[in-house]
Simulated scan of single mutants.
Amino acid sequence: MRQQFVAGLAALTIGLPGLPQPARAQEPLPAASFRLHCFDDSAERTAVEVEGVLALLEFAENHDGEPVFLDAVIEADAGAGGCSRDRSEFPNQPSPDGNRARISIDPCRGESRRREQGRHCWRDGMVDVQAIGPPMALTSSIVLPAQADIPENLPYRIRGYGDWLNYQGPFIVHFYSGTGYTYATFHVPDAALPGVWDRARVNAARRPRD
Rank of each mutant, 00 (worst) to 15 (best):
V53T: 05
F39A: 15
P91E: 12
N166M: 13
D77Y: 00
D210E: 09
I172F: 02
R115Y: 13
I150D: 02
E27A: 07
V48W: 04
L12C: 08
C83T: 05
I103L: 14
D97H: 11
P67N: 11
V127K: 00
G195V: 10
S140I: 08
R157D: 01
W197V: 04
A148F: 04
R100S: 07
I14G: 04
L193S: 06
D124T: 09
L29S: 08
Y181A: 01
Y176E: 12
R209Q: 03
G133V: 03
A205W: 01
L54H: 14
L56S: 14
A205S: 06
P208Q: 15
E61M: 07
E89L: 14
G178Y: 01
A72D: 06
P91V: 04
G118L: 02
D86R: 11
P17W: 11
L70N: 04
E27F: 07
R35P: 10
R119W: 03
R159P: 12
E44A: 11
N62K: 12
D198A: 12
L29F: 05
D149T: 08
Q130Y: 11
G125A: 01
A191P: 10
A32S: 03
V127F: 03
V6M: 05
V68E: 08
I105C: 05
Q26C: 00
P96V: 09
A10S: 07
I142L: 04
N166K: 13
A72N: 11
